[in-house]
């Protein structure tokens, strides 16, 4: 079974299970096997493959997936991706065209939109998308998209920004210069009109952003360069660290299977090395074990855990 076949099947499986908010009674493995032209074992294996995507920092989407099995029936909901099948592959489109060609009059009777979608030649346009949104609220990704557009177009942005411990959110009009990522946090580096100075705004503290029609006069280039050279480091693949975490013997016992490369010690503890791009993620991951896990090194990560735990 090839990866493309499995990908198609897994996406269609999630789509099937989660349509209409998830069927009350679920669908039997036998029925799913029949629908997808495969075996019940393959369906069960697809479920395992889908949910074993593990601990990468990007797997928030798995949190939006719920699946359940009662007897031989499977059901689920997804609030995120994979709620529809993948679009037709070029080969599938070809198969449909060949089938239609056997009855050319039939093809002519197809509705125009459908005919266009199925029989039109080449691929979609490659034109870059227009500005996606001009106001984004609460959704960190939409806010980031809007800010990137603003930087690209040289437009002013109005933001509502909350600093912890402050009262009301602040309303600011800013001139955006860059969006940068540093150690897992994303920042906007901008000139603030009210403060008449350079500010860095953490994106997850921006409650709302609105794109202005107006552009802005750029600060003098030497100043812009100086600001760019300050503190921030662009994500460049060097920002990956090897972090060693030791788990207590009691917890280590059932982690061995998940971390076959872990190193056991005399006391029965298990040390696992994580390759980490985001300290933020690693700290959360370690703290969820309470005092049964300890970061051994690098030192910076030990400090990060202490800081996060309120020390």
């Amino acid at each position: 079974m090839t990866a493309p076949e499995r990908l198609n099947r897994i996406v269609s499986l999630v789509a099937e299970l989660s349509r209409d908010g998830g069927s009350a009674d679920g669908i039997s493995f036998a029925e799913l096997a029949r629908r997808f032209g495969t075996t019940e074992s393959a369906i069960a294996a697809d479920v395992r493959a889908l949910t074993s995507l593990g601990e990468s920092a990007a797997d928030d989407w798995l949190l939006s997936l719920h699946l359940w099995q009662e007897g031989d029936r499977l059901a689920g909901t997804s609030l995120g991706p994979f709620r529809r099948p993948i679009r037709l592959t070029p080969e599938e489109v070809l198969a449909i065209r060949v089938g239609l060609a056997a009855d050319p009059k039939a093809a002519e009777r197809l509705s125009p939109d459908l005919r266009q979608a199925l029989l039109a030649g080449g691929d979609d346009d490659d034109a870059p998308p227009a500005v996606a949104v001009d106001r984004a609220s609460l959704d960190a990704d939409a806010i980031r998209g809007l800010l990137l557009d603003a930087v690209h177009l040289g437009r002013r942005v109005g933001i509502r920004y909350l600093t912890p411990g402050d009262g009301e959110p602040h309303q600011r009009t800013v001139h955006p210069y860059r969006v940068l990522e540093d150690r897992g946090w994303v920042y906007l580096s901008a000139w603030c009109e009210a403060g008449e100075g350079w500010r860095r705004f953490r994106l997850d503290r921006i409650v709302e952003a609105e794109l202005d029609d107006a552009g802005f006069d750029r600060r003098p280039e030497e100043e812009v360069s100086r600001e760019a050279e300050a503190v921030f480091r662009e994500p460049d693949g060097k920002a990956v660290d090897d972090v060693r975490v030791r788990f207590d013997p009691a917890v280590a016992r059932w982690l061995e299977e998940r971390y076959p490369d872990g190193v056991s010690d005399e006391d029965g503890g298990l040390t696992v090395t994580y390759r980490v791009a985001s300290p933020h993620w690693l700290v959360r991951h370690v703290l969820q074990y309470g005092d049964a896990a300890e970061v051994m090194g690098p030192e910076g990560y030990r400090e990060a855990v202490v800081a996060a735990a309120g020390g």
């Binding site: 990908l7 493959a49 995507l53 593990g54 797997d59 989407w61 990704d141 980031r144 998209g145």
Partner: peptide, 18 residues
């Protein structure tokens, strides 16, 4: 490869910017 593809696809679908 399947896991890698699913991760890559989910990551990109989830973002509204390049």
């Amino acid at each position: 490869k399947l896991a890698r593809w699913l991760d890559l696809i989910a990551l990109l679908l989830n973002r509204q910017y390049p």
